[in-house]
Amino acid sequence: MNQNSLLQISNLHAEVEGQAILKGIDLTIKAGEVHAIMGPNASGKSTLAHVLAGRPGFEVTQGEIYYQGNDLLSLTTEERARKGLFLAFQYPVEIPGVSNVYLLKAAMNAVRKERGQQELDAMDFLELIRMRMAELGISSELLYRNVNEGFSGGEKKRNEILQMSVLEPQLAILDEIDSGLDIDALKVVANGVNTLRSSERAIVIVTHYQRLLNYIKPDYVHVLSLGRIIKSGGPELAEVLEEKGYGWISQVDDIHHSSSGEIG
């Protein structure tokens, strides 16, 4: 395995409720890179994101995933999170009775403990949160509201980015973070992501549309279809997709399949 890679996925097969969704994914991501994973509906994009985060019920049937050089699949959901893997949900969950500030504090303490850092005292914690909220244009009133309860679509997405910026992950996976956002909100979210770009950190953007990639420039673009990566390339690939649509890919897909069939 490649020592320089942050995440290395090989021949990943996964199923949900007995149905095979991922059928052999290979992907290597190094620190400092931004990858976009694109694909039509039901191509397996979100499944891949949740398999990485360790969602119960998403079963890996074949293949391996190494993260920071360790076997990711042997870690529980929370262990992965503490080791810096962050998933921004497409549909952030509403948690009645648990306020946003509780969640942030609990999550941050858990992550800091893992990193051998001291827990932040209440003042420093609040100061940090308030600063990040201001950057993301989130009203500070949301801090004391229940997690995502009664939030607008845009507020939920911004709240995900807030958690990400506070937790400072090593690998951030953004699952359809652009869905349901108007152009202004999209810019705010993209800006939040861009400020997090660094040489120690990798970002994976899962999206259906090319729109978001105008604001967050990926280094690599992968096209997922029927559970396989059928094409990889640079940022120009996203533009071709935008122009020609996924129909163009499915033709490529046919060629890909028939050729691999001959080799196989």
Partner: peptide, 16 residues
């Protein structure tokens, strides 16, 4: 308890 919520919390690093 709602399994979705449980997963969400765990994905933020909070133990089960």
């Amino acid at each position: 308890l709602d399994e979705e919520v449980l997963y969400y919390l765990r994905s933020r690093g909070i133990d089960e």
